[in-house]
Design a binder for these strands. Structure first.
Lengths: 192, 192
DNA sequence: CCGATGTGAGACATCAATGTCTCATCGGGA
DNA sequence: TCCCGATGAGACATTGATGTCTCACATCGG
């Protein structure tokens, strides 16, 4: 069902609304429902028809973020080749979701309720398992815990996403900056 | 009646209120003025007498964070010894301020106004200069820009502060985890 | 052509946080 | 001792976001 018009009356594409909301909230976490609706090119009433309230919207974004994160993990094929190669593939796959993840991480309201989405635990476990595999293969150092490496990955992705948004880091360098820093660090390694 | 010292009527220690507010807001950025007041053991009216409003409070926290960050830089003696040593001293000095910095970084409202505190620029410049010095000395790699290394340092400090608060990383490992990851990365760089 | 559906705009009540005010009380200093 | 200043508690109005509702209208399918 094709369609043309911009503001004209057409069935709302729930997916598109979510992506627009993600883009907006990534930049301005305190955006109101009205701003979200405007950004998505729909009316506030319509936004409420699809998402019962702000809470439901954030939950939907959380589900979307988890889903795309999981997809990125699947695509990264953790068991193919070295752990380093898998990590680089993961970072590449996460780039399009970086802004959304940065927003969700700061939305700590998500993590204090009893109904915390268990998807995060699964993601954490899978990523930590990748780092652990790298340690067992002798690729990664063992004095940095897999849990910390996982957190650091999240942190660097969010930080870099913001830095790119603010123009402090070139967008094209996103994957390189994260992967190189996380893997090799700032110190100039000994040439060999 | 008959309470002693604590909630008793006594002149408010502005500094102590700020520190308490920083500790609370680091954990819960959306805490209300009432919650901040309760946490500081004072009445909401008194809080308003010292800080005109929530905005003024956040600005005061910003000033405090900048001041302590600057103090940490001074203490780190950037020009003494290697850049790596200076960076480790900086991380050590920033540990007590980590929570506050993590809060301020996410308070992006601070950075969108025209009246953005120029203190951040000075801090950025000083830290970036340290990384640049390390590059010029041949200690640090030159394919990671000083600006990115600076951002990454902020990000890792905030991430680690949260991870410690949530019990995912041991508090005593704070300095080590950040310094080792930032300097050496996850890869096991053995000379063989 | 006509009804069903989904939409935009806006009115409206609600709610929570904020900011301001008063007042009784306590403590320190003159 | 007595007065002044600072405080805590609470009342109050204000503000902004939210959630619900109605209504007119455009589009689609029959």
């Amino acid at each position: 069902m094709s369609h043309i018009g911009y503001g004209c009356l057409m069935t709302v594409d729930r997916e598109q609304v979510l992506r627009t909301a993600a883009a907006l909230l990534s930049r301005k976490a305190t955006a109101t429902m009205d701003e979200v609706a405007r950004a998505a090119g729909i009316g506030r009433a319509t936004l409420h028809r699809h998402f019962a309230g702000r809470d439901a919207l954030v939950r939907a974004l959380e589900a979307l973020g988890i889903q795309e994160f999981e997809a990125a993990i699947d695509t990264a094929r953790f068991d193919d080749g070295t752990a380093e190669e898998a990590l680089r593939r993961l970072i590449a796959g996460l780039e399009p979701v970086a802004g959304l993840l940065a927003f969700l991480v700061t939305e700590n309201q998500l993590f204090e309720g009893d109904q915390m989405n268990e998807g995060w635990d699964r993601l954490d476990a899978r990523v930590a398992a990748l780092f652990r595999r790298g340690q067992e293969r002798g690729e990664f150092r063992i004095d940095l815990t897999p849990v910390w490496l996982t957190e650091a990955l999240y942190g660097l992705i969010g930080t870099c996403a913001w830095a790119v948004q603010d123009g402090r880091v070139a967008g094209k360098d996103f994957q390189y900056m994260i992967a190189e820093l996380l893997l090799g660090g700032a110190r100039r390694s000994v040439e060999r």
